[in-house]
Design a protein around this nucleic acid. Structure first.
Lengths: 329, 329
DNA sequence: TTGTGAAATGAAATCGTTTACATTTTCATC
DNA sequence: GATGAAAATGTAAACGATTTCATTTCACAA
């Protein structure tokens, strides 16, 4: 609980000198450095970030905005962000918005009040207007989910292409009746993924059937179950389902099995995200892998550069289709 | 980017008065209050937490220490902590230790450097010595996992009793050959859960068979698979498995199915934690539910009281056995 | 010995608040 | 209108660091 004054006094030097040995930017004699270090040791001194932060007008904290902590999709991204941030002496504040503007506002306030130096937003439901306004004064990066054309740098994958390749895989193993389990098309990625789905179908002369396209309110397990129930009731039942999230796909899996049908013999299933759990199901899920860890590190690096006042460009990363039992048996 | 000085000037009052309307503790005339509020509005002023925090010697940030963010077990607890914290104007820094002392040290340093006001530790692998030493100067609460007798308040459940009831359930539906999939007994909860397991067996005159007890290094899916492989190779194969975490149990589930056996007809499975996924598997998992959200709110309340200098007592909460398909078909 | 420039150190301002204490204003009372 | 207590406001000192600028120290050459 000592402060820099006491260290200075104890070492017989000025506070400036103590600060210099603390930060190591400036030169000090080996002898005085030793004196100061002894005093630090003796007094068990730890520099207070509160003082330092005020003086430097920074908090060295970055905010991560996610809709909910329980979606495993975010794990690897968060790890990527965290590791990059830590290496640059930043800490991360993980913020669940629950897709509620009130909670969002609480966290936005944190940056307005200088408690955070910047934001990485992964919340597709974020209030774009506020974000835009905030971006004029503070460092903001969009990760994975993004609003296009609002002038905020983002890092993401090519959703349309990923979706195209997933559906093409289903076509190539013989499916023609392929359902799409999509989320609300107010989200850009949902529109892109439908376009990829349609492109794959068209390319193989399969007509797009509106009855095969389902929209869910959220991307969770229950929504997957509910949508699958509807799909199973269709009179001309699809033989394959492409779901835009693994949790949706896992819900479908459960529902198909519960109906006494077999995956993939009766219905094949493809998910999206390659969350850890997608490998734990029976059968293991075919899914699109996003380079999540990389997305995290890139987003963090971009944010830190933005904080430092540099201009940064958006980045589109690659993806990969992981073929497992839910399509190939 | 205005500061309190400029607001004061613009409103024609002193900074003290501005501070007073900001905080509302002290009395100000309705008229001056209006003037100040107008100035705040006009200048788009937001008080800086950096200045305030330094002056108040607090950061209003609490640390949550968890081994890994990808264990769903922690979700509800974290939500509980977060909501309670937010309601008291605290923010939470979620810290993954990966069970590595180096990372732990980074986060401990954050509280030493006053960047955080306290810690809620949920990491069973935490360095108890350092924690004990830290607890002499800073507010620390243990949640769910705890080292006993080290004088740091904790909130947890009665692991022994929960384990006892889970195993008793297996016995009551006719099982006699019950395997235990436990984690390393260097952890208190692991020892307690084995004791509960043994108590249930003894109470029904079933001898404890050392060959039926397995230890895993971590509590994940893969460890569950590996342990289950071993169990399936036993010549006198158990008819039931009690795993001390849901992820272990889910690994067991997958392995049993892969071996062409049926759950629960060939092998019944019980997990522990009632994570979201435990309901998404085929079959759904019987498991012990801990009152996670409550644990979180209680831990947060305890921590905040500790920060305020009050003395707090440890708390033991109730639990509940959730019976689903993996034991009853 | 003295002068010189470079290197090391110190003094004091600064970051943006809160608050103890001092001062002024207000207003009921005589 | 003077008096006084209570209410409102102002002044200035913290909080704990960093950094600019001024000053001292030092080594070395003349």
């Amino acid at each position: 609980m000592a402060n820099i004054q006491q260290v200075a006094k104890h070492a017989g030097v000025s506070v400036a000198t103590v600060s210099r040995v603390l930060n190591g930017h400036d030169k000090v004699t080996a002898k005085t450095k030793l004196k100061v270090e002894e005093a630090i040791q003796y007094l068990n001194y730890e520099p207070s970030m509160l003082g330092r932060n005020l003086r430097n007008s920074e908090s060295r904290i970055v905010l991560i905005l996610i809709p909910t902590i329980s979606n495993p999709f975010y794990f690897e991204i968060i790890k990527g962000i965290e590791n990059m941030a830590l290496s640059q002496n930043y800490s991360i504040l993980l913020c669940e918005t629950d897709s509620k503007p009130e909670k969002e506002e609480i966290y936005f306030d944190l940056v307005r009040k200088k408690m955070a130096d910047g934001i990485i937003s992964m919340d597709p439901a974020v209030n774009v207007e506020t974000l835009k306004e905030l971006a004029q004064h503070y460092a903001i990066i969009q990760c994975s989910e993004y609003g296009g054309g609002i002038g905020i740098p983002y890092v993401t994958i090519d959703s349309e292409e990923a979706s195209y390749r997933a559906v093409k895989h289903l076509i190539q193993i013989g499916h023609k009746k392929i359902a799409l389990m999509n989320s609300d098309e107010k989200f850009l990625y949902a529109r892109e993924r439908r376009m990829g789905y349609e492109r794959a179908l068209r390319e193989h002369d399969i007509p797009v059937n509106g009855d095969y396209i389902f929209y869910t309110h959220e991307l969770g397990f229950e929504q997957g179950q509910m949508a699958m129930k509807k799909i199973l009731r269709l009179e001309d039942r699809p033989t394959a389902v492409f779901a835009v999230s693994d949790l949706l796909a896992i819900g479908a899996l459960k529902e198909i099995t519960a109906a006494g049908l077999h995956v993939p013999n009766d219905v094949a299933v493809v998910g999206f995200d390659k969350i850890d759990f997608s490998n734990m199901t029976n059968p293991a899920l075919t899914t699109v892998a996003q380079p999540m860890y990389k997305m995290g590190t890139v987003a963090a690096r971009m944010l830190i550069e933005k904080i430092q006042g540099k201009t940064v460009d958006s980045v589109v990363l690659g993806h990969e289709l992981v073929i497992r039992e839910s399509t190939t048996g």
